[in-house]
C-alpha cells in the first residue's frame, strides 16, 4: 500500500453523515437529501440476515457507507480474530466502503469479549503491537483503515506517555488514518484535566479522514461519552478548530440512545454542515485558523446524574403469535 497520506488524497469527500441505527433507520433512509452518507457498526450486520440484512441493502442502495467497528480489539495481545476479519471484509466488499475504522483500545482477551472499549497502557510495547496488527488488518482487508481515539475513565498502569503522544505514535508507526472523535477529546479533557486544543495540536491532524461529533453526560464522578444527548457548544468549537486545519473526508453525528425528534438530529447535522462549510472557506482562503488561545477554555460541570451506556446491541423485535 502507498503511504497513508497519499492514499488519503484519493479518498472521496463524503460530506456530513449520520450513524445508521435501527431505531432511526426508517427516518434516516427517508432523508437522503439532508444526510450525505452513513456509518454503520459492522458487528450488527456481519453474517446476519432478516431485518439487519434488509436495512443494510436499503442503506447501500441510497447512501455511501463506511463501517465503524467495535470488536477488532486491535490492542489486545490476543491474535487477530480471522473469522471476524473475513466477515468484515465480506461486508466491506458488499458496501464498497471507501474506508473502515475501529477504536484504539482492546475489547477482548483470551477469547473473552467484554463488549466495551477498554483503555490500553500507553507504552512502546503497545504501540509496536498495534502498528503490526494494523498493517496486517489493512493488508487483509485492502482498504484504508482509521483508528479512533476513545474516551477513557481510568489511568492504566504501565503508561509511558500521554494520550496525544500515544495516538500520534500509533498512527505514524502503523501508517494509518485517524477517526478523530472531538467529543471524546472534550470528555477526556474534562475527566483528565488537560487542554483539548493542545491535545489536537499534538496529534498528526493531517491523518484525520473522518470526524465524530456526539453528546455526553455528566456522571457522579466522570463525564461519560453516552452518545445520548445533544452536542454541546465546546464540542462544536473543537470541530471547527480541526476543520479549519485539516481536510477531513467526512464528518458525522453519532446518536445512539435517548433519541429526540428526528428534526433535532437533522438540525445538528445541519449545524455540522454549516461549521464545515465555514471552515472550508477559511482553509481555501488560506486565512490563518484561530489559535487556541483565542478560544475559551472549558470548565467541568459537576452535576451528578445517572450514568448511561452506549448501546451496541441489536436486540430482538416484538413477537408475533399466530394460529
Amino acid at each position: 500500500m502507498p503511504d497513508f497520506l497519499d492514499t488519503k488524497k484519493l479518498l472521496p469527500n463524503l460530506g456530513i453523515g449520520l450513524g445508521l441505527r435501527r431505531e432511526l433507520a426508517s427516518q434516516t433512509l427517508e432523508n437522503r437529501s439532508k444526510i450525505d452518507w452513513l456509518e454503520l457498526v459492522p458487528e450488527n450486520y456481519m453474517g446476519l440476515g432478516g431485518a439487519s440484512r434488509e436495512r443494510l441493502e436499503s442503506a447501500r442502495d441510497q447512501f455511501p457507507l463506511v463501517t465503524h467497528g467495535i470488536n477488532l480489539s486491535i490492542g489486545s495481545t490476543d491474535d487477530l480474530n480471522t473469522e471476524y476479519l473475513s466477515k468484515l471484509k465480506k461486508l466491506l466488499d458488499f458496501i464498497d466502503a471507501p474506508w473502515f475504522s475501529d477504536h484504539l483500545c482492546f475489547t477482548s482477551l483470551d477469547g473473552i469479549y467484554m463488549h466495551d472499549l477498554l483503555p490500553l497502557p500507553r507504552s512502546k510495547e503497545a504501540i509496536n503491537l498495534i502498528a503490526e496488527k494494523v498493517k496486517r488488518v489493512q493488508g487483509t482487508i485492502g482498504r484504508p483503515f482509521l483508528l479512533e481515539n476513545i474516551s477513557y475513565y481510568m489511568n492504566v498502569p504501565g503508561s509511558e506517555m500521554n494520550d496525544s503522544q500515544f495516538l500520534a505514535e500509533v498512527a505514524e508507526k502503523a501508517d494509518c488514518g485517524l477517526l478523530l472523535d472531538v467529543n471524546n477529546v472534550y470528555v477526556n479533557s474534562l475527566n483528565h484535566e488537560f487542554d483539548p486544543f493542545q491535545y489536537l495540536d499534538q496529534i498528526p491532524l493531517e491523518r484525520t479522514v473522518q470526524i465524530h461529533v456526539a453528546g455526553h453526560k455528566q456522571g457522579a464522578d466522570y463525564v461519560i461519552d453516552t452518545h445520548g444527548s445533544a452536542v454541546v457548544e465546546p464540542v462544536f468549537e473543537l470541530l471547527q478548530y480541526v476543520l479549519e486545519r485539516v481536510d477531513a473526508k467526512g464528518v458525522m453525528l453519532e446518536r445512539d440512545q435517548n433519541f429526540p425528534a428526528f428534526e433535532e438530529i437533522l438540525a445538528e447535522v445541519d449545524k455540522i454542515r454549516q461549521i464545515s462549510q465555514a471552515a472550508d472557506q477559511v482553509r481555501q482562503a488560506g486565512s490563518a485558523p484561530r489559535a487556541h488561545s483565542a478560544v475559551k477554555t472549558f470548565e467541568r460541570d459537576r452535576k451528578a446524574s445517572t450514568i448511561g451506556r452506549k448501546e451496541m446491541a441489536e436486540v430482538k423485535h416484538a413477537r408475533v403469535l399466530s394460529a
Binding site: 467484554m114 463488549h115 466495551d116 475513565y153 481510568m154 489511568n155 451506556r309 436486540v315 430482538k316
Partner: peptide
C-alpha cells in the same frame, strides 16, 4: 492503582451484559 476507574469499567461491562441478556 486507579481503583475508582477500574470499578467504573467493571460496572459498565456488567450493565452491558445485563442489558443484552435481559433484552433476549
Amino acid at each position: 492503582f486507579d481503583a475508582d476507574g477500574a470499578s467504573l469499567y467493571a460496572r459498565l461491562i456488567g450493565y452491558g451484559h445485563s442489558d443484552v441478556i435481559s433484552s433476549i
